[in-house]
Structure formats: structure tokens, C-alpha cells
């Protein structure tokens, strides 16, 4: 069995960031590329990171909780 590996994969971490693996560019609205310093990045989704759009672990301090994300079968 060959598992299809998508070129970009986003893992929704419970109570945490979106982990992004693969070739992807994050840009400002006017099209300028934001610095990307590593192959796998974590995007903030608690809204309180000091280095947005990236995660800095602040979600743990503020007790950020996500609703369970239900996989489609």
C-alpha cells in the first residue's frame, strides 16, 4: 500500500498551534514573504503569540483550549 503524502501537511495540535510541514510560503497581505527559518513551522492559533504568525508557546500560559476536531472518515 502506498500512502499518499500531500506536498503540504497541516497538523491541528489540540490546545496548540497548527504545525505546517512542507514547501509553503507565509506572506503579508501586500505579498512580501515573512521570514521562515525552519522546514516545519508552528502557526499561532491562540492569538497571543509574541512572534505571530508563529507560535511561541504562550497558548499554554493562557490555558487556550480547542474544541475536539472531528476527523472525517
Amino acid at each position: 500500500m502506498v500512502d499518499r503524502v500531500p506536498p503540504v501537511l497541516i497538523v491541528a495540535c489540540p490546545d496548540g498551534p497548527l504545525l505546517v510541514r512542507g514547501e509553503v510560503e507565509v506572506r503579508t497581505p501586500d505579498g512580501r514573504a515573512l521570514p521562515q527559518r525552519r522546514r516545519t513551522v508552528a502557526l499561532c492559533r491562540c492569538g497571543k503569540s509574541t512572534i505571530k504568525p508563529y507560535c511561541d508557546g504562550t497558548h499554554k500560559i493562557i490555558g487556550f483550549r480547542t474544541e475536539p476536531e472531528t476527523p472525517e472518515d
Binding site: V11, C13, G16, P17, L19, R37, R38, T40, V41, A42, S49, T50, I51, Y54, C55, D56, G57
Partner: peptide, 16 residues
């Protein structure tokens, strides 16, 4: 500063 960003990624990979 590098570790603020890096370890927020690493902790997710390391835990899960």
C-alpha cells in the same frame, strides 16, 4: 529568540 520559535515547534513534535 531562535529557541522561542524553534521549541514551540519542537515541543509539539516531541510530545506527539
Amino acid at each position: 529568540d531562535e529557541h522561542v520559535e524553534a521549541d514551540a515547534v519542537h515541543e509539539q513534535i516531541a510530545a506527539r
